[in-house]
Amino acid sequence: MIRLTDVYHSYSTGTRALRGVDLTIEDGEFVFLVGPSGSGKSTIVKLLTGELRPTSGKVLVNEFHTSKMKQSEVPYLRRTLGVVFQDFRLIERKTVYENVAFAMRIIGASPKVIKKRVSYVLDLVGILHKARRKPNELSGGEQQRVAIARALVNNPSVIIADEPTGNLDPDRSLEIMMLLEKIHSLGTTVLVVTHERELVDQFDKRVVAIDGGLIVSDKTGGYYRYEEI
C-alpha cells in the first residue's frame, strides 16, 4: 500500500515541487498519475523509491516509512518495488537475460531459481526470444519490455512506471500499457506516470491528476481531466 499524507517537498534550489499532497493507493489498484511537465509527478516517484525524503508530511510504502527510514533500509524498500523509467536504464554491456537475472542476483537468489524465474518473466513480457541480445540490438519498445521484466522479476508488490512510453511511438506505447495492465491483472499494484492523454483515455482506470504540486483531480473512469480544471 502507498499512502502520502500532507506531503511537501522543496528542492535545495527553492522549487516547491509538492505542496500538500494526500494520496492513497490500495494493494491491487491500477492508477494513472497525470499532469503537465514540471507538476511534481517524478518528485512523487522519487519519494516512493526513497531517492528523496519529504520536506514534511508522511510517505508510507509497503510498511516502509520513507520519511524517517535509515539510509541502509532503502535497498530493502526498493526490493518491494519494481521501477520502470522512460529511458529504460538497462546495462549496455550485459545481455537481456543478464540484465534481468542481475536484479535477482542482487538479492542473493540461487542460480537455479534465477534461471527459472528469468525465463518466465522474459516470456511474460514477450521478449524471451531475444534473451541473448544486448540492449542496443533491440528497439525501444523491446528495451522497455526488458526493463519491465527486470522490474517484475523479484515479484514486487508495486510496479511504478515513470513515463514508460515517453520514448515510444503510439503503437508501441499502447502495447506497453497493455502489458502493464496484464501484470496488474496478475495481482500487482501498478502506478503509471504519464502525460499522454490518448493513452490514458483508452483504459478505464483511476486517474489522479496533479498540477503545481497539488492533486487537482482523482477520478475513476479513464478521462484525462486535468486540462479542464
Binding site: T49, S72, P75, Y76, L77, R78, R79, V83, R89, L90, I91, F102, A103, I106, I107, R150, N154
Partner: peptide
C-alpha cells in the same frame, strides 16, 4: 556510474 545508479535503483546494497 550509470550502472551503479541502476544497481541502487533495483535494490542493491552498498556492500554489494
Amino acid at each position: 556510474r550509470e550502472e551503479i545508479g541502476i544497481m541502487k535503483m533495483i535494490g542493491a546494497t552498498d556492500a554489494f
